[in-house]
Design a protein around this nucleic acid. Structure first.
Lengths: 194, 194
DNA sequence: GTAAAAACTGACACATATGTATTTTTATTT
DNA sequence: AAATAAAAATACATATGTGTCAGTTTTTAC
């Protein structure tokens, strides 16, 4: 647990991240990470005590680096509807690729370890996304793009639908068309025809 | 894998089911099941080869025994809205108790084993629930209880919200109030005030 | 009542993961 | 360049799980 080289520490976390993306959380052993990092068993233990600790550090990095969910969507002269559509499209892309995401690993980790009340990675992400969507809907309502009586409720609802799609993508194998249908449904409920 | 006694086989599956409810899927070992069943290691292997096989059999039993999602909700003179409310309340109860459910085990199982295209336990449940909700909404629309332009879409949407709530209950620790809010939101979107 | 078949048991051999302790390598200081 | 300290690698002891098999008990059939 010593600090040793901060650079190597970072390298280990970044490499471990890839391993977790590939194999989820539960399957990953210290050996896997050792091999991926091309270091020795003892070497790894100098930095971290176990896979849970490593995973938590990876999540911490992740939430520090996580740029705004809308960073890709916001442009100078985009309308609220444009931004929402881009956001939903982005989410679609994300949830349809099974590997290449920490999604499953995060779920597994929270299954295994009682989800923390504080510092809950998923909860933070969820809540902040809800807030931003709510703001966005309000803007859309103000300039007449959307019709919505309960912006906060709608924002929450959208996020729960996305959560549902996300876990479904991992379990019941939904198709891109299914996601599209949901996106259209969401937009229509805001009065936006596509 | 021999058939041996069908009765004992059933007993093992029922006992294993409890173990999976308690510990999820990944954590459970043959030893756990052996001990829960109070039989010998060799004895268990006479019936099943590994935990995956046992779990699949448990799921099969589950889906055979699974009574209609609405069985508890339907009564002689209930309105469509009544039935829908009861159903949502039932789902709420279910998703809020963490243990006592195969939910997490099923997720873990599908994480570990590529979800099957055919015989997908979750998919079957999901699809059949969607169908029934759709029917229910149609009935409600016909007799003026609900307002809805896209019954199929709404039914699907409701199920994805429920999926989202279900996984969220396991990961971000949602409260009963959060579920209630979503239920109210769903009903309101159908034009039902509560 | 006994012999054959079926069901069951517990120990064993193997495999894999963990965390630590010791040795070796590399870097730093004088 | 030798002495020392830090970092990394290797080997080890421990733990836990798996699947099998030789032997035992129970059931079945005659």
């Amino acid at each position: 647990m010593g600090e040793k080289s901060a650079q190597k520490r970072k390298y280990i976390l970044e490499t471990a991240r890839k391993v977790f993306m590939e194999k989820g959380f539960k399957k990953v052993t210290m050996k896997d990470i050792v091999e991926a990092c091309q270091i020795s068993r003892g070497g790894l233990y100098l930095y971290f005590d176990n896979t849970s600790e490593i995973f938590m550090e990876v999540m911490k990095l992740e939430s520090e680096e996580a740029d705004d969910v809308f960073s890709d969507s916001i442009t100078e002269d985009a309308t609220a509807a444009d931004i929402l559509v881009l956001f939903l499209q982005e989410q679609k892309k994300e949830l349809l690729r099974k590997k290449d995401t920490l999604t499953q690993a995060v779920y597994e980790f929270y299954f295994e370890n009682q989800p923390p009340k504080k510092d809950n990675f998923l909860k933070k992400q969820f809540d902040s996304a809800v807030k931003i969507i709510e703001k966005l809907i309000e803007i859309g309502v103000d300039n007449g793009e959307f019709y919505c009586e309960d912006c906060a409720g709608t924002a929450r609802n959208i996020m729960f639908v996305l959560e549902g799609l996300k876990i479904s993508a991992q379990t019941i194998r939904i198709t891109p068309e299914t996601v599209d249908r949901e996106i259209v449904y969401i937009l229509k409920s805001l009065g936006v025809e596509t």
